[in-house]
C-alpha cells in the first residue's frame, strides 16, 4: 500500500486528538471546580474539591442505617449491567449462531433487521414497553391477557428493557466473529469424531470469543452509564449512576456530575484496554 495514503488519516488524527482529549480535560477541570451553574464565565470558576468527600461520606441516616447513594448507584449499575450482559450473551449468541446456520447470507440484510428497532426513538420504545407492563394496558384490552409477566417498577421490568434494547450490540459482533470461522474447521472437527456439542465448545466458541468480548463491552458500558431505560421502566425507583449524573446535569450541578462522569470514564478506558487484549483493532466491535 502506498505510504502516500497515510496522509489521508492526518485530519482524522487531529480530529480524534482534539475531540477525545480536550473534552476529557474539560470534564476533569470541572470535576475539581466549584461550577454549579450553566454560567461558564471563567472568572467565576475556582478550584474546589469538597464535593469529592460526598463520594465516601454522603451518608444519610435511613432507618438508623448509614447509607451512601452514590455507592449504591454504582453498585446498582454494576449489578444491572452484569445481568444484562450475561443474558444478552446467552440469547444474543444463540440468535447469532442460528442466523449463521440459516440460509440468509447477506450481512447487510441481517444487520438491518437486527438494528431496525433502533430507528424508532428510544424514549418511545421504552414508554411502549412500560405501557404493556401496567395493570391496565392496551395489549390486555385487545387480547385479554398480559404479554409480559412482570410489572413496571420491578427489577425484572428494567432488565427486560435493557436486555432487548442492547442485545443487537451483542448479536452483531458475535455474528461477525462467527461469520469468519471457516466451515471446513467445523466439518473437520465432526469428521474427527467430536460430537456437535463438543465441536461447538472446543472449536467454534473459542474462535468467536473475540466477538463475545466486544459484544459484552458494547452491552455493558451503555447499560452501566445509561439513564433513560431504568428511569422509565423502574418508575424512577431504581437509581443507576447514570440517573444521578443526569439529575446533576439537569439541575446544572456540573462539578458533581463531572466528578461522577470521570469515574465512568475511567471504567470506559479500562474496558477499551481490556478489549485490545482480545481484539487489537476492535474489528468485531460491530
Amino acid at each position: 500500500m502506498n505510504s502516500l495514503y497515510k496522509r489521508l488519516a492526518i485530519p482524522y488524527q487531529v480530529w480524534l486528538v482534539l475531540l477525545v482529549f480536550l473534552p476529557i480535560m474539560a470534564i476533569l477541570l470541572i470535576a475539581i471546580s466549584n461550577l454549579t451553574t450553566a454560567n461558564f464565565n471563567l472568572s467565576d470558576i475556582s478550584f474546589q474539591l469538597s464535593h469529592w468527600n460526598d463520594l465516601v461520606e454522603n451518608q444519610s441516616l435511613v432507618d438508623g442505617e448509614y447509607f451512601n447513594s452514590y455507592l449504591t448507584a454504582f453498585k446498582n449499575s454494576f449489578i444491572y449491567a452484569s445481568i444484562t450482559t450475561l443474558v444478552s450473551f446467552i440469547f444474543g449468541y444463540f440468535l447469532a449462531y442460528q442466523i449463521k446456520k440459516s440460509r440468509i447470507k447477506n450481512k447487510f440484510i441481517i444487520l438491518t433487521i437486527i438494528i431496525l428497532p433502533m430507528w424508532s426513538n428510544l424514549i418511545l420504545r421504552s414508554e411502549a414497553l412500560r405501557s404493556v407492563m401496567l395493570d391496565n394496558n392496551i395489549f390486555k384490552s385487545i387480547f385479554g391477557f398480559d404479554i409480559l409477566p412482570f410489572s413496571v417498577g420491578t427489577p425484572a421490568a428494567v432488565l427486560f428493557g435493557l436486555i432487548f434494547t442492547y442485545m443487537p450490540f451483542m448479536i452483531l459482533p458475535v455474528y461477525t466473529a462467527l461469520e469468519k470461522i471457516e466451515v471446513n474447521l467445523e466439518e473437520a472437527s465432526l469428521d474427527l469424531g467430536l460430537t456437535p456439542f463438543k465441536t461447538f465448545w472446543k472449536v467454534v466458541f473459542p474462535l468467536s470469543f473475540k466477538g463475545v468480548v466486544s459484544g459484552s463491552i458494547m452491552v455493558f458500558l451503555p447499560t452501566f452509564a445509561g439513564f433513560a431505560i431504568p428511569k422509565i421502566l423502574s418508575n424512577g425507583n431504581i437509581v443507576l449512576i447514570g440517573n444521578i449524573i443526569e439529575t446533576k446535569f439537569t439541575y446544572n450541578i456540573y462539578n458533581v456530575g463531572s466528578m461522577l462522569a470521570l469515574l465512568i470514564l475511567i471504567l470506559i478506558l479500562g474496558s477499551i484496554l481490556l478489549l485490545t487484549r482480545f481484539d487489537k483493532e476492535g474489528e468485531t466491535l460491530l
Binding site: 454549579t36 464535593h51 444519610s60 447513594s69 437509581v239 439529575t247 450541578i253
Partner: peptide, 19 residues
C-alpha cells in the same frame, strides 16, 4: 442556592435508592 439544590437532589436520590 445551588449547593442546597445539590443537597436536595442527593436527598431525593437517597430516598429513591433506599427503598
Amino acid at each position: 442556592p445551588s449547593d442546597f439544590v445539590d443537597d436536595i437532589t442527593s436527598m431525593i436520590d437517597v430516598v429513591k435508592t433506599s427503598n
